[in-house]
Amino acid sequence: MNYENILVNTENNIATITINRPTKLNALNKLTIEELHQAFQELEKSYDVRVIILTGSGEKAFVAGADIAEFANFSVEEGVQLAAQGQDILFNFVENLKIPVIAAVNGFALGGGLELAMACHIRVASDNAKMGLPEVSLGVIPGYGGTQRLPQLIGKGRAMEMIMTAGMVNAEEAHRTGLVNHVVPQAELLSFCNGIAQKIMKNSPVAISMAINAVNANFKEGENGFQTEIKSFGKCFGTEDFKEGTTAFIEKRKAVFTGE
C-alpha cells in the first residue's frame, strides 16, 4: 500500500515504519495518524511480520509533536473528538497490538511524539534525543495518553514536573528515570533495535502476544491483571507453540515456533 506521510519496509520478519515528514519534523497530522493506523493494522494481520520498529525520518526528530495548525481553532467538542479518536485509532491501538513495537527515538520526541513512543512496548533513544510534553505552554494538556502513560513509566512526581514545567529531558535522563530502555549512538539506533527484534523472534509469537495483553491488563480500569495472567497462562497450554517449546526443551534442541 502506498502512503503519503509514512514509509513501510519489511525484511526478515521485521517491519520498519518511518514517519516521513522531515520538513515538519515528522509532526503528527490527521493524515499521518490515519496512515499509521492503517499500517499497524495491516502488519498485525501479516504472518510475515514478527516485530515492528517505529522511527522518524532524518536525524532531527522522531516526532516533534502534533501539527498545531490543524486544531488551533477547534471548539471544545472538536477537541474532545480529536483526543478520543487519536487515542482509539493509534495510541491505544499500538499499545494493545499483538506484535511487539519498538520505538527508535531519533532526536526530538515532543508532545504527541513522546506519547506515541510511550504507547510502544519498548523504547530505544539515540544519544541526541530530547523528550518532553510541552502542551501546557500552549494552554492545553497532553491528549493522547501522556498524562497516564508518563506516570506509569517514570512515577507520578517526575511526570508531574515534566508536564507542569513543559520541559525537556535528554536521553541519559530519560534512561535514568525509565522513560527509555536504552540509549545508543544515533548511527547505531536502528541496528540496535534490530538486535532486540532478533532476540524477540527466537520466542513464541503467541506467548508474546498473550504477555503483552497480560501486562497491559494491570493498567486498565476494571481489569484484574493477575486474573488475565492466569487465563492467558492456561490458554498457552492449548497452543502448538507450547507443545513445540516444551518438546524442544526436553529434547535439548532449539524450538521452531509457528505462532499457533
Rank of each mutant, 00 (worst) to 15 (best):
L43A: 03
F40H: 14
A64G: 05
A109R: 14
N9H: 06
E34Y: 03
G113W: 08
S126R: 02
T228R: 11
A129Y: 11
A197M: 02
I122Q: 04
K98I: 07
E59H: 05
H121W: 05
L36M: 15
I141E: 06
V140K: 05
M118T: 01
Q81A: 11
F237A: 15
T55E: 02
G222V: 10
A103R: 01
K231A: 13
Q41P: 00
P142Y: 09
E59M: 09
G167A: 13
K24W: 10
S204Y: 03
Y144S: 15
E172K: 14
V51Y: 02
V256C: 08
G143N: 10
K199S: 04
T16P: 00
T258C: 01
L82V: 10
Q41K: 15
K243Q: 14
G143I: 07
F242H: 12
I17V: 07
N96M: 04
K45Q: 13
N5Q: 13
Q41G: 00
N218R: 15
G132F: 08
P205K: 05
I102R: 05
N26L: 07
R253T: 11
I68N: 03
N216G: 05
K199P: 00
L97Q: 10
Y47S: 05
A83V: 11
N20Y: 09
E4S: 12
A72C: 05
E172P: 02
K156A: 06
I52P: 00
L110Y: 07
N12G: 01
H175K: 15
L36D: 04
G132Y: 10
V94P: 10
A61Y: 07
A211C: 03
N216E: 12
N5P: 00
G79D: 09
E223F: 07
T32Y: 05
G112Q: 11
L7Y: 00
T165Y: 06
T247A: 04
Q38H: 05
F237K: 10
V49D: 07
F242C: 14
